[in-house]
C-alpha cells in the first residue's frame, strides 16, 4: 500500500473513533438549560435522570443560611419562583437580586442543586448604568 493510502485510512479511523466518542460524551453529559418559567412548565417533558440547569434572579430576602453551611433560596422569573436547596461553595457575587444559575434536579417541589453559578463580574457593558444616567 502507498503511504498516502495508509495515511488516509489511519486518519479515517482516528476521526471515526473520536466522532463516536463525541456522540457518547454528549449523550452522557447532557444538561438541559431552562429559565424558571420553562422549568415549571415543561418539567415533565424532561427525562427524570438528566440534569437540569435553571437560570433565574435570586429573590430579594429569600436566602436562608442553615447551620451546616447549606443555603435555601428562591429564584424567580416574572413572579414565579422555584425553591432551591444548595450545599457547596457559594460564589462571591451571589446575593439578593443577582442572576444565578443552578444545576441539579427536582426532589418533589424543591430543586436540589449541586452547582451554583452567579454571573461573573467581567462586565463589559452595564446597561443599567446607562439607564441611570439618562
Amino acid at each position: 500500500m502507498k503511504p498516502k493510502v495508509k495515511l488516509r485510512i489511519l486518519t479515517f479511523v482516528i476521526i471515526a473513533f473520536f466522532s463516536f466518542l463525541i456522540f457518547k460524551a454528549v449523550d452522557s453529559s447532557l444538561v438541559y438549560y431552562l429559565t424558571v418559567n420553562e422549568a415549571l412548565e415543561k418539567n415533565r417533558d424532561f427525562p427524570k435522570y438528566k440534569q437540569l440547569r435553571i437560570l433565574g434572579i435570586v429573590k430579594e430576602g429569600s436566602i436562608i443560611n442553615n447551620l451546616d453551611g447549606s443555603i435555601v433560596f428562591e429564584i424567580e422569573e416574572s413572579g414565579k419562583t422555584i425553591k432551591v436547596k444548595y450545599k457547596g461553595i457559594i460564589p462571591d457575587i451571589f446575593a439578593d437580586g443577582v442572576e444565578a444559575v443552578v444545576e441539579g434536579d427536582f426532589k418533589d417541589s424543591v430543586f436540589r442543586a449541586d452547582k451554583l453559578f452567579a454571573k461573573c463580574p467581567t462586565k463589559y457593558e452595564d446597561e443599567e448604568y446607562k439607564k441611570e444616567q439618562s
Binding site: K119, C120, T122
Partner: peptide, 9 residues
C-alpha cells in the same frame, strides 16, 4: 451564556 457575563452589545 457564560458565567462571565459580558452584557450584550
Amino acid at each position: 451564556s457564560s458565567v462571565h457575563s459580558f452584557a450584550q452589545s
